[in-house]
């Protein structure tokens, strides 16, 4: 197939097509269906052309790091390492969006204060922020929202956080920008708040 024609073993290949030459729109579509984590640690690393396609900023405008499929990271890297790996992945995803990140969904278990600040710096046009089971964190988000996420339109929380958050928001109402974003239940019935992520309070270790 390539110049030189090095003698390949006679084993029948699974495919005679060169899949690294898949149309760019097609591989991008595959990536969006696989999601951020699988793209970052699997398909997006396969070859030069796929890695290159996985760098496309528009792919990263919507980042979902709250989906159950992030559990594979825990399986693969073990209980001591996986939080750091998830944070590093989320950071890389935010970088790839090149400032175009519009919505991000993250969850208790790996998100920390430093990561929220990172999003604030790198994603000035963020519109939707989803926090799953981050009860301990949403107050910090209120404070940050006014300065770090000026364009935030919606804060999506776990169902049981919403009422409390709405109440708390009324108490932090001194800001003139108060009420510039909505607080909604963003996880609905797809999301179990009581899954097998051990609960944790603040987690401040660096990436």
């Amino acid at each position: 197939m390539d110049a030189g024609g090095d003698a390949e073993p006679a084993t029948e290949p699974a495919s005679a097509r060169d899949w690294s030459e898949l149309p760019r729109d097609a591989i991008a579509s595959v990536f969006t269906k696989l999601g951020a984590v699988e793209t970052l640690m699997g398909a997006g690393l396969v070859c030069h052309s796929w890695l290159d396609a996985a760098m496309e900023p528009y792919l990263w405008q919507s980042l979902n790091m709250a989906h159950p499929n992030i559990f594979v990271v825990k399986e693969k890297f073990g209980p001591n390492k996986y939080r750091g790996v998830l944070r590093a992945m989320a950071k890389e995803a935010v970088d790839r969006s090149a400032g175009q990140l519009l919505e991000v969904f993250i969850r208790q278990g790996f998100v920390n204060d430093g990561f929220l600040n990172y999003i604030g710096e790198k994603a000035p046009s963020l519109k939707v922020l989803g926090l799953l089971s981050c009860t301990w964190m949403y107050k910090k988000v209120f404070v940050k929202a006014y300065t770090k996420f000026p364009l935030l339109e919606e804060l999506k929380l776990s169902a049981y956080d919403v009422i409390r958050a709405k109440y708390d928001a009324t108490k932090i109402s001194s800001s003139p920008n108060d009420g510039h974003f909505l607080i909604n239940d963003g996880y609905g019935h797809y999301w179990s708040d009581r899954d097998d992520w051990e609960s944790e309070e603040d987690d401040f270790d660096p990436y």
């Binding site: 290949p13 699974a14 495919s15 005679a16 060169d18 899949w19 690294s20 595959v30 696989l34 699988e38 640690m41 699997g42 398909a43 690393l45 396969v46 070859c47 594979v72």
Partner: peptide
């Protein structure tokens, strides 16, 4: 491709 490492994906699709 789901749940597969880069190496496993290369094998499935015969990618160098």
């Amino acid at each position: 491709m789901k749940g597969k490492s880069p190496d496993q994906i290369r094998e499935v699709f015969n990618i160098k």
